[in-house]
């Protein structure tokens, strides 16, 4: 058994707001994730799944519990955990190349080395012809490719993806899912992927954690035993894929009925 790279132990998040009083955003979560695993967190909106990701990233402090990455307690953000957000969060004053170079330059690479590194990644995300463009000149899909390249450029061991394809149209979304699996297949980084799309979670992941509605708990874990590399057209016809999707959808429907 490989050692767990990420250990999330008893993590919860409570907001004390003056308007609404105590708001429990995330209830007691414990998850272990092995190195090189692609893990999805699936849940209805407002269940705190993004909050969990932010806590792992060190952007938000947990109210209770702790997060260990390679045995080290997470106390803040660091280049070992690279985020990719739904909002892209690119630096609008930098060109595509400037955005992707930013991390390597910050790590002390020379300008030449950082440029070379950035160009490598732009080839990887098929944007080698756009290095002089500013973010405002790009489509949503292209912006998210830049954001992914910018994060990969500083070599994080863990990718934290916060509904990264949520703002994209269906066609771009499936294309980027394929590209992401392609890129992931090269060096198998550990990925924590937050989404509310069941099919996306099953298609991409080794494991899917299904969360309950607010305050979010882990309701069930699915080990997705499907061969890789995965090809969408084949999976759609694969009985096992269909079973996973149906089982998870039923589980999520039950929750909605409980609320209604």
């Amino acid at each position: 058994m490989a050692t767990d790279m990420i250990k999330i132990a008893g993590v919860s998040k409570v907001y004390d707001t003056t308007q609404r009083g105590r708001h429990v955003a995330l209830g007691d979560i414990s998850i272990d994730i092995a190195e090189g695993q692609f893990v999805s967190i699936l849940g209805p909106s407002g269940c705190g799944k993004s909050t969990l990701l932010y806590i792992l990233g060190g952007f938000v402090e947990a109210t209770t519990g702790q997060v260990l990455v390679n045995g080290q307690k997470v106390t803040g953000p660091g280049p070992d955990r690279g985020p990719v957000f739904q909002e892209f969060a690119l630096f609008p004053w930098k060109t595509v190349l400037g955005n992707v170079m930013y991390g390597p330059l910050q790590q002390g690479l020379s300008k030449e080395a950082a440029t070379a590194r950035a160009r490598e990644l732009l080839v990887l995300v098929h944007l080698q012809n756009y290095e002089g463009f500013y973010p405002k000149e790009l489509s949503g899909g292209m912006k998210q490719r830049v954001a992914l390249a910018r994060t990969l450029a500083y070599g994080p061991k863990i990718l934290l993806m916060d509904e990264p394809f949520g703002a994209l149209d269906a066609y771009t979304r499936t294309r980027l899912q394929n590209e992401l699996l392609d890129i992931w297949g090269r060096d198998r980084k550990t990925v924590m992927f937050v989404t509310h799309s069941v099919e996306e979670a099953v298609f991409l992941s080794d494991r899917v954690f299904v969360m309950t509605k607010s305050p979010g708990h882990i309701r069930k874990v699915f080990d997705i035993d499907l061969p890789r590399p995965r090809v969408r057209a084949e999976l759609l016809l694969d009985r096992r894929y269909q079973d996973y999707v149906i089982a998870i959808e039923r589980l999520m429907d039950e929750q909605i009925e409980e609320i209604a």
Partner: peptide
């Protein structure tokens, strides 16, 4: 946050 992750 993106900048913080890069170490700024």
């Amino acid at each position: 946050w993106s900048a913080a992750a890069m170490g700024l």
